[in-house]
């Protein structure tokens, strides 16, 4: 194919990107706008809303809960993901497609169904809702993403390195920790970051399962009803966008490194999914 795109297609691509970025670009405008009403025209520049965030105690608790949940979720789903991805990439076993497919199901399950299913169990068992119940749900929905990322890391790994280690007298566990794990470390870091980000932003399951330990999105949801609180929420959103952006860039860097270590740069485009 020729490398020259039709002009109309290029114009469309640019308009589409503007559509994608419109809400994100508005965020800093309102976060620094010196007005209690979220509307145009802008009235002036202020850091006031960021200062307000610093003083809101409920927000700090929500942030702490969210960070705790996101860290545990990232570790839990990446650990489960390593098991599944390694098994899928390295071994053949009966029912493989079905089992892997089943673990990936939350990817195509409406989140409200996951929330409903877990809350029903918790009510029946008489357990109270807490940060841990949210973690259970988040691990469930993050594991498929972890598997997708890790599987490409395991698939791209050169099998002969593993065989060489075994031939040189290392046992299976030693080989795993000293050869395989270092080779897929960038994939693991990428998986940790992605799971962390998904958990941090997840609202539907968190809303069902938090109880009194509100997470950041649940806190934001509770504030959206009060117009006076909105500018501070815009400031908070702006900070969250910055954080997500940094984490995502880091994840992308490690994902590419994972593919480069494996000597397979071509697959980097397709492994996102």
């Amino acid at each position: 194919m020729s490398a020259k795109p039709p002009r109309s297609l290029f114009t469309y691509a640019v308009i589409y990107l503007i559509f994608l970025y419109a809400p994100v670009l508005l965020l800093p405008l309102f976060a620094f706008n010196d007005s209690a009403i979220i509307a145009l025209p802008l009235s002036g520049f202020t850091f006031h809303w960021f200062g307000l965030l610093w003083e809101t105690k409920a927000l700090h608790e929500a942030l702490y809960n969210s960070l705790l949940i996101a860290v545990v979720t990232a570790i839990g789903s990446t650990t489960l993901g390593i098991f599944a991805a390694r098994a899928a990439a390295r071994y053949e076993f009966p029912g493989k497609r079905g089992i892997v497919g089943f673990i990936m199901v939350p990817l195509v399950l409406p989140e409200i169904i996951v929330g409903v299913a877990l809350i029903v169990v918790l009510i029946q068992l008489g357990l109270s809702l807490s940060a841990w119940t949210v973690i259970i749900g988040h691990v469930l929905i993050c594991t498929p993403f972890a598997i997708a990322i890790l599987q490409s890391a395991f698939n791209n790994m050169d099998r002969s390195l593993e065989e060489a280690s075994m031939d040189l007298g290392e046992n299976k566990i030693g080989t795993f920790f000293r050869v395989i794990l270092p080779l897929v470390t960038p994939g693991i870091i990428s998986s940790l970051l992605i799971s962390f980000t998904i958990s941090l932003d997840e609202f539907i399951i968190a809303f069902f399962l938090t109880g009194t330990d509100a997470t950041l999105p649940v806190y934001i949801w509770s504030q959206l009803r009060f117009p006076a609180r909105l500018p501070a929420i815009m400031a908070l959103g702006f900070l969250m966008v910055l954080l997500s952006f940094i984490l995502l860039l880091a994840a992308e860097y490690f994902r590419r490194r994972a593919n480069r270590i494996a000597g397979n740069p071509q697959s980097s485009d397709e492994s996102i999914f």
């Binding site: 994608l20 809400p23 994100v24 980000t197 932003d201 999105p217 959103g237 969250m240 966008v241 997500s244």
Partner: peptide, 13 residues
């Protein structure tokens, strides 16, 4: 990238 910003805030925007 835009997809990684808080869903709630995006909807609100």
């Amino acid at each position: 990238i835009p997809f990684w910003t808080s869903y709630l805030i995006r909807v609100f925007l």
